[in-house]
Each structure stands twice: as C-alpha cells, then as structure tokens.
C-alpha cells in the first residue's frame, strides 16, 4: 500500500511539474528530464530484477521507485500476461479482447487490482478473484498502459480518504448508483447473466476508478458528471456503510423485503410452530 502510494505521489509530482514547465505534450513520465537522471541511478540496480521478472512474473519482488523502470517492468508484464488478448501494442485482438487505447492507468489498476484481469474465463462478465500481481506490478502495468495512450489516471489520495460529506454522497449514490448496486450497495441483477457487484469492502481507489472508467456494463461518471469531490463523497458514504453495521441488528444481506419475508416464514413462524407442537404434545 505504501509503495503504491509512493508511486502515485511520484506520478502526481512529475505530472504537476511537467504541466507547469513544458505543458500538455509531455505528460508521459519517460520524457521528463528528471526521469533520465533517475533512470541512470536506478537502472543498473534494477537490471537483475528486471531480468528475473522477464523469466518469471510470479516471483518478481523488485522495489520500483522509478517511473521509467516501472514502465519497462510493466511492458514485460504486459507482454507475458495481457498481450495474448489485448495485443502487444494495446491494439486488441478481434473477438478475443478489446483494445486498451485510452483506458488509462485507472482502468488497469481497477481491472487487475481487483483480480478481474487477467480474465479467468469467458463469461457474461469478468468475475472478481484473487489478485494475480503484487501492488508494484499492478502499478507498473498501469504506468505502461498509460504511457502508450493517455486515459483516466489513478486518482490522487486526497479523494480517497473517505473524509467527504457522507450525506451528499448518500444522495448521489441513491440517484446514480442504487438502481444497479442497491441502496445499501448489496449489488443487483442485470440482463443476460450480468450483475452489479456488491460494494462492501471495495477499496476507495477501486470505487473511484470504477466511476471514472466504467468497467463492463457500468456507465462512465466523468468529472463533469460527478466532480472528484462528489466521487469522494460517494466513497465516504460507502465507507460509512462498511464501518457502521446496521443499527437495527443483523441486516440479513441488506437485500430488502425478500430476505425479511423468508426470515419470518422460516425462522419466525418456524419457531412458533415448533412451540405449538410442543404445547399440544401429549404429556407422556
């Protein structure tokens, strides 16, 4: 977590300095003047690790503190894990995987960081599973994909602290999200075997990234739609739900009256019928 944060900080630093000095054209980390110097100092140290990565993705434990190194590392990871379906240059493969032009670092961080990618199997929807990469590897991949074609960036930490306005967040959530994810974030059904997942326990960074990139059936909520502050409010509300269990007791899955009805029939009436049988039983 701290490492990712470090990278994100570096990223935002580089981005800020660039935009002030050089302007829009040099967003990419590798063109930054500092990046070259950093590359020289770190390059030698990381060569061995990069080689190990190239041969085996799972055993890599390189500590990347440098953007360019991460991009290179990401390229290697991408070639060996993603290129089969998405193409070596993100161009996609017909009928297999979509092109990744413009998806941005946020999309990679969400899809790979929640374990949805690499895809376990073809189905109506990519399922969440155990994350396949370390956090550094995920950020390397994200950096690499973002370096080839710009897109939504990984959100800055200031929006992810769950310290916004929960009340606004709750209202925004009900208006924008609840029709698929349910008011309590318990998830819901979509057409043709797809579904909106439950939101309990999802990391703030992933919630934010899902909103900006609109993975799978989800619509994109860009910054004019929902400002970053509003996104932070929604995250605040969802984290409030995570932290505060239902004041009324066990929430029975928070899926509404169906579970309440089942509960009263099976356990409520069931318990009472058991009592009636006991009362009416003949005392032998």
């Amino acid at each position: 977590m701290t490492v990712t944060k470090g990278i994100r900080d570096t990223l935002s630093m580089t981005r800020n300095s660039k935009s002030t000095r050089i302007g829009k054209t040099s967003r990419r980390g590798r063109r930054h003047p500092l990046a070259t110097i950093a590359l020289v100092t770190i390059g030698l140290l990381s060569t061995g690790g990069a080689y190990a990565l190239f041969s085996s993705t799972a055993s890599a434990e390189t500590s990347s503190v440098n953007t360019q190194a991460s991009v290179d590392e990401g390229k290697k990871l991408f070639s060996s894990n993603c290129a089969t379906c998405h193409g070596l240059n993100l161009q996609g493969v017909d009928n297999v995987g979509p092109s990744l032009y413009g998806v941005g670092a946020a999309s990679v961080s969400f899809q790979v960081g929640t374990g949805r990618m690499p895809l376990a199997n073809q189905g109506p929807q990519a399922e969440k599973k155990a994350v396949q990469f370390t956090e550094e590897q995920v950020s390397s991949l994200a950096l690499y994909v973002a370096s080839l074609s710009p897109g939504p960036a990984i959100p800055s930490a200031e929006y992810l602290g769950a310290n916004g306005n929960a009340s606004t967040g709750a209202e925004l959530f009900r208006v924008n999200c609840a029709m698929c994810h349910n008011v309590a974030g318990a998830g819901g059904a979509l057409t043709q075997g797809k579904w909106a997942p439950a939101l309990a326990g999802v990391l703030p960074v992933h919630i934010y990234e899902a909103m900006v990139t609109g993975p799978q059936s989800m619509p994109v909520f860009n910054d004019t739609n929902l400002t970053p502050t509003q996104k932070a409010d929604i995250i605040t509300y969802l984290k409030y739900l995570d932290k505060n269990p239902s004041p009324g007791g066990f929430d029975l899955g928070a899926v509404g009256p169906v579970s309440e009805g089942l509960f009263i029939w099976i356990f409520g009436l069931g318990a009472i019928v058991a009592v009636t049988i006991w009362i009416a039983a003949k005392a032998n």
Binding site: V175, V183, A196, P247, G248, P257, V258, E260
Partner: peptide, 25 residues
Amino acid sequence: FTINPIWTYGPYDPSPVSAGTQPDW
C-alpha cells in the same frame, strides 16, 4: 434483526429506484 432500514433507503424522491426493490412478502 434489522427490518426496513429506512436510513439506507433515504427519503422518497421520484427519480431513483433501488435494485432489489420489492414489496413486503
């Protein structure tokens, strides 16, 4: 056991509809 957690449903507003909206049994 919680029943009808109105605090998560929020006040009525004709625009939103939650997934999993059902009547009582």
